[in-house]
């Protein structure tokens, strides 16, 4: 269960960053254009978190099932972010931040396979 939530949360965080790296969406959220540096940082964080999610899902359940786990949670996280952000932009961002932080915390402090 923890593993599932972490996977979903990391992928969700990844999509949130990738989306906010796009000027058009950044403007919708914050009213101003992002600086090029900020845009690039967001994009890098976005790709890194989803890579991290893929790495842990493969480590957790091997290449075949791990890939399916990652791919399915990746798609659902994208749909969740895109559906949430026009209605509740602040909550959507908050969820990405808190979810990402919580799953990183869980991964660092409880990396035991039994939890997963």
């Amino acid at each position: 269960m923890t593993m599932w939530l972490s996977l979903l949360a990391l992928n969700y965080l990844s999509w949130a960053c990738l989306c906010l790296a796009v000027a058009r969406h950044y403007r919708q959220h914050f009213g101003v254009d992002p600086s090029p540096v900020r845009s690039r940082v967001l994009r890098i964080i976005g790709w890194l978190t989803t890579l991290l999610a893929y790495a842990i899902s493969v480590r957790w359940r091997d290449w075949d099932i791990g890939s399916v786990d990652w791919c399915a949670s990746w798609m659902l996280a994208a749909i969740a972010w895109v559906l949430l952000q026009p209605y509740r932009p602040r909550f959507a961002r908050w969820l990405a931040f808190v979810g990402g932080a919580a799953s990183l915390f869980a991964l660092i402090f409880y990396p035991s396979p039994t939890l997963f």
């Binding site: 269960m1 099932i65 399916v68 786990d69 399915a72 949670s73 798609m75 659902l76």
Partner: peptide, 14 residues
């Protein structure tokens, strides 16, 4: 049929 209930939930939602 693999991977337990969680993955069936993901398929269900997708």
């Amino acid at each position: 049929q693999f991977g337990g209930a969680a993955i069936r939930w993901l398929y269900f939602l997708l």
